[in-house]
Design a protein around this nucleic acid. Sequence first.
DNA 1: CGACTTTGACCAGCGC
DNA 2: GCGCTGGTCAAAGTCG
Length: 469
Amino acid sequence: MDHRTPTGGLSFLIPPPMEKRSPPLDEMDFFSTDDKKMKKLTSMDLDHLHVNPIKKEDLTINTGLHLLISNTGSDESTVDDKECGESELEAMQVQLGRMTEENQRLRGMLNQVTTNYNSLQIHLSSLLQQRNQRMNQVDNGGKNMEQEAAIVPRQFMDLGPAAAGGENDEHSNSSTGGSRERSSSPTNEVEIGSMETTSTTVNNGNNKDHQMPPKQDATMRKARVSVRARSEAPMITDGCQWRKYGQKMAKGNPCPRAYYRCTMATGCPVRKQVQRCADDRTILITTYEGTHNHPLPPAAMAMASTTSAAASMLLSGSMSSSDGLMNNNFLARTMLPCSSSMATISASAPFPTVTLDLTHNHNQNPLQFQRPASIYNQSKFSGLQMSPDFNGSQLPKPLSVHPSSFADTVSAATAAITSDPNFTAALAAAITSIIGGGGGGGAQQINNANNINQTIANAPSSSSFPTST
DNA sequence: CGACTTTGACCAGCGC
DNA sequence: GCGCTGGTCAAAGTCG
């Protein structure tokens, strides 16, 4: 098989009926129609949240739909027809005004939620940092000041310059699995210092002599993102080129585990493992590890953004039980188009791992991950940090506590939304029903869906998240 | 002929 | 120390 031309053919199961459940308290349903909730939200203390006032010009909505208000009448319309058209136009203007108000309200909600989230995340990270420091003082007795200095709340990201050649050979302190390739293992990949461990500082080349204590090396951890998808194909399509370099029989699984290495650039450290689930062999488990040291094609960016958003969430330090639950929900809601999808975080595994379970995700096709790629070509994409699939050269050096991590999630959410034809079709149908009475038929809805999809994909980040329907 | 896959061997970590 | 396991290497084979 030629892995340079990734195989596709994911076939997702018909999902179970959508669960009707009320969201937990820590979840926010952006699409709720419950007016009480909305009023409750809009009455929040704006001063406390530092919500930017909404300007009138911000409310100008460019849907980009290029919707044509079709006039079914002939050119020989009578005066009555004109009057009728004028009244219809007035009615539409009234409806447009209502939609504008609705959009204003939703925008306010989104701003509040965004600000709330950022403040909470900063607060959480500060708490975690304090806890880390306490634990380090207790466990280590301050044995390693350098390590403490290196800790940023429970996570660490080495975003050293992308290996533009053999530089990777100088970074040898990030791998846990012993192998002869350790000397070439990268450091520009996401790493995590767990609660009882720390990560090394950015390798500046002074560690060539591999003097890191073995204990510390053993506890070094990489972030991994595991994607579960139902597929008959031997490998899911993610837009990258992979070369198989090994295959092993893993314990407890009759299906062999295949090891792939990214071949899109020489020296790219990204690897992935592909294995079928022992319980259900139609489920393909793909685990990504490492950071690309090269630009990704649009097709790969979409998938990578999803996995990186998962890694972002993982690396945001929210792996404890309580906040982990929240993040699980958040991941499932933001990154995955279908609410029946699952995102689980495991910190107990040898590597902290985010698992994206797409096995319940109907109508999801790997190719659809490729569609919203255009949004990632925009500047906002630079805010995507801690990605296991993006190299440091593309990114600034923020850490997960930075509020922009929310932008990552929004990016992923946008990708997910725009990749979901059901959502866009529903959006188009809703708009069509409001504006034109839904006379366009299926074809028109499809066109509108495409327009909306394009609009969302081309919209700047601040407005890419759908705020009105 | 180059790129890729296959597969046995090797290495390191870990538990006993 | 020994055996198990996961991860990787590298030679041989395959393919376009």
